[in-house]
Design a binder for these strands. Structure first.
Length: 646
RNA sequence: GCCAUUUUAGCUCAGUAGGUAGAGCGCAUCCAUGGUAAGGAUGAGGUCGCGGGUUCAAUUCCCGCAAAUGGCUCCA
């Protein structure tokens, strides 16, 4: 028989071969790191027999499918160790994930960190034993019989839920046997470089109504070196954590008396205001009108909007003169009242009402996370009233605006389209119309997106923009939500060209999303080293000694007068100490002043990215940095580059 | 909300087999007047998360609560 390889070459065999045999035939090195295979482009297990005339490709850890197989085998390794040490533990599921794997386990006694150490040891033993991993298939009845005999009730449930035509396979390694679709490695010996990372609770089948199991997370790589590199990346991510940087740079703080309610310190407020200035600038350009609606409004209004029925559990309330009032969790009802406060002509549409609205939402205590997930945040909200015909163009316009904003900061993002959730209002036709509108806009703009079934708002479907934090976790920031319901409920209208009353459509949209969350992302993205235009402290003046305090102060005055955020370090310390401090505070520009500078009326500039310094006049410095800030550049100016060292 | 872990000085963290605690950084004062990533000396700082219980005595042991961290579920 003939087998074709990826490179076009042909191998001939006189008896049937499996994928792993082809790998061995190509080379022992490849066979050693083979994780899975591909036959005619279809991913397969290494044990799969190769049909005559097919094309075979060997997948390793470098390939997505191979990497999953590798990590999946690691989760079996963990499960085997668990069953050896704790025979009564029941296994649930154990898939590969980004950067590792996990296994969900049901055990009477809780696992402790010491158990993890013991498990790691046992896993190492199994690796050393280099146990062959084998696969077999059986009928549904045999499979059920087998797992039930072992008391593995979760596995039984899994089997019962498999589709009728599914092939039911098991993988065994030594005494351990697990229901699994595969693929897997050939033996346990390859799984050397792993580490169990953490314990967590996880609901069986992801539902809050089910029992909580213990999830053990682990990570694994083909070599110790790669594992070490990964652990170092995690350490680096920890250093970028916005909660740590936020505290160190005095941007914001938290306090037990207000869980989920961040306090912004003066530097954090500067950062926030700078973002808001930028936001106003682009929204003015885009013909938005800024409004502000009340923080507290009567319960009746929230019944009209549907929030009372669909969003009650997230809302804080208060009582005024024996009536219930709601502390707004969203800005939309207020915007509806503003729109309805006067008649509108079709000529006014799209009518764009923007609002930096601070909202309060009751979030479950366990979900709070620094600035990323809080109970009080400011949305850069807008509600756009328009005709059906304007819908697609308006959505595209907003997508472009959000893209412009994210591009300015150098963010990568991905887009999700969320459809109708269970608790929602409106007719199926409206929902379909709205979803198709969003899809059409995305497709016309040739934007890739994933569909998130059932994840829309209760009043309409949405497009979400997700940004990454330092650990690669993604957070929803921008969103565009289509709404046919609120105009109906609030009886909103406009007068058309025909002189008749018509119902407008509403778009809810945010670009930053929550300004707090956006700041969290910004901090981690830049690791605290903000571009100059955003930096709370842009320039720090460092006198060589107290003899030059006076000169330093004059420089500071000039800079402040020119509109910069400049500080003067008058601590009784040596220059090296002050530079180190400014560096750790991530100050973009350090200006050293001493005898030479005072005499020539200059400053020595040093930026935080480079050790080099250059002596220039204050005017030259002001001019250059002013332009940098106006252009909102990400990179600092390198004064040592192309500038004369006069 | 659920599971696990954690909570000691402004920050990072030691420590007490039950006898009211310690380091580094930071801060203050003094000396040194210094030229591009930490000069030296001295000193101040803690109700050991909060509330109960056991005990002659609790920061330490037990119980409850709160908050934080990592997840799950839920959402900007």
């Amino acid at each position: 028989m003939k087998v074709y390889l990826k490179d076009g070459s042909v191998r001939e065999y006189d008896k049937p071969v499996r994928v792993i045999d082809v790998a061995r035939d190509i080379g022992q090195g490849l066979a050693r790191c083979a994780c899975a295979g591909e036959i005619d482009g279809k991913p397969v297990d290494l044990r799969t027999e190769v049909p005559d005339g097919s094309t075979v490709n060997i997948l390793t850890f470098e390939d997505d499918y191979g990497r999953d197989a590798f990590r999946h085998s690691a989760s079996h390794l963990l499960a085997q160790a668990v069953k050896r040490l704790y025979p009564n533990a029941k296994l649930a599921i154990g898939p590969p994930i980004d950067n590792g794997f996990y296994y969900d386990i049901d055990r009477e006694e809780p696992f402790t960190p010491e158990d993890l150490a013991a498990l790691e040891k046992e896993m190492q033993r199994i690796v050393k034993e280099n146990i062959p991993i084998e696969r077999f298939v059986c009928s549904r009845e045999e499979a059920l019989d087998r797992v039930k005999k072992e008391g593995e009730n979760y596995k039984a449930e899994l089997i019962e839920n498999l589709p009728d035509d599914a092939e039911i396979s098991f993988y065994t390694q030594g005494e351990f046997c697990d229901l699994c679709a595969g693929p897997h490695l050939m033996e346990t010996g390859q799984l050397k470089a792993f580490k169990l990372m953490s314990l967590a609770g996880a609901y069986w089948r992801g539902s809050e109504d089910n029992k909580m199991l213990t999830r053990i997370y682990g990570t694994i790589f083909p070599s110790k070196k790669e594992l070490k590199a990964h652990l170092e990346r995690l350490e680096e991510a920890k250093r970028r954590d916005h909660r740590k940087i936020g505290r160190d740079m005095e941007l914001f703080m938290m306090n037990d008396d207000g869980p989920g309610f961040p306090f912004f310190l003066t530097k954090g407020v500067t950062l926030k205001n700078t973002l808001i200035d930028y936001w106003r600038e682009i929204h003015l350009r885009e013909n938005y009108q800024e409004i502000q609606t009340p923080m507290i409004l009567n319960q009746r209004l929230w019944e009209t909007s549907g929030h009372w029925a669909h969003y009650r559990e997230n809302m804080y309330t208060t009582t005024i003169d024996d009536e219930t009032y709601v502390i707004k969790p969203m800005n939309c009802p207020g915007a509806m009242l503003v729109y309805n406060s006067k008649p509108h002509s079709y000529r006014d549409l799209p009518y764009r009402l923007a609002e930096l609205g601070t909202v309060h939402r009751h979030e479950k205590s366990g979900v709070l996370h620094g600035l990323m997930r809080v109970r009080c945040f400011t949305q850069d909200d807008a509600h756009i009233f328009m005709t059906h015909d304007q819908m697609i163009d308006e959505i595209k316009r907003i997508v472009r605006l959000i893209d412009e904003v994210y591009l300015l900061f150098g963010f990568k993002y991905h887009v999700e389209l969320s459809t109708r959730p269970e608790s929602s209002m409106g007719s199926d036709e409206d929902w379909e119309h709205a979803i198709n509108g969003l899809k059409q806009a995305l497709e016309e703009m040739e934007l890739n997106y994933v569909v998130n079934e059932g994840d829309g708002a209760f009043y309409g479907p949405k497009i979400d923009f997700h940004l990454e934090d330092s650990l690669g976790r993604t957070w929803q920031c921008g969103t565009i939500q289509l709404d046919f319901q609120l105009p109906e409920r609030f009886d909103s209208e406009y007068i058309g060209a025909d002189g008749e009353r018509h119902r407008p459509i509403v778009i809810h949209r945010v670009a930053f999303g929550s300004i707090e969350r956006f700041i969290g992302i910004l901090i981690e993205h830049f690791a605290g080293k903000f571009p100059t235009w955003l930096a709370p402290e842009q320039i720090r003046i460092l006198p060589v000694s107290d003899k030059f305090y006076e000169y330093g102060e004059t420089i500071k005055k000039q800079l402040v007068a020119a509109g910069f955020r400049a500080e003067f370090d008058d601590r009784d310390e040596k220059l090296g100490y002050k530079i180190r401090a400014a560096q750790k505070d991530h100050i973009p520009y350090m200006l050293v002043v001493g005898a030479d500078e005072e005499e020539s009326g200059t400053i020595s500039v040093r930026n935080r990215d480079k050790r080099a310094q250059t002596t220039i006049t204050v005017d030259d410095f002001i001019q250059a940095v002013d332009k940098e800030i106006i252009d909102r550049q990400i990179e600092l100016i390198d004064f040592s580059d192309g500038q004369s060292e006069s």
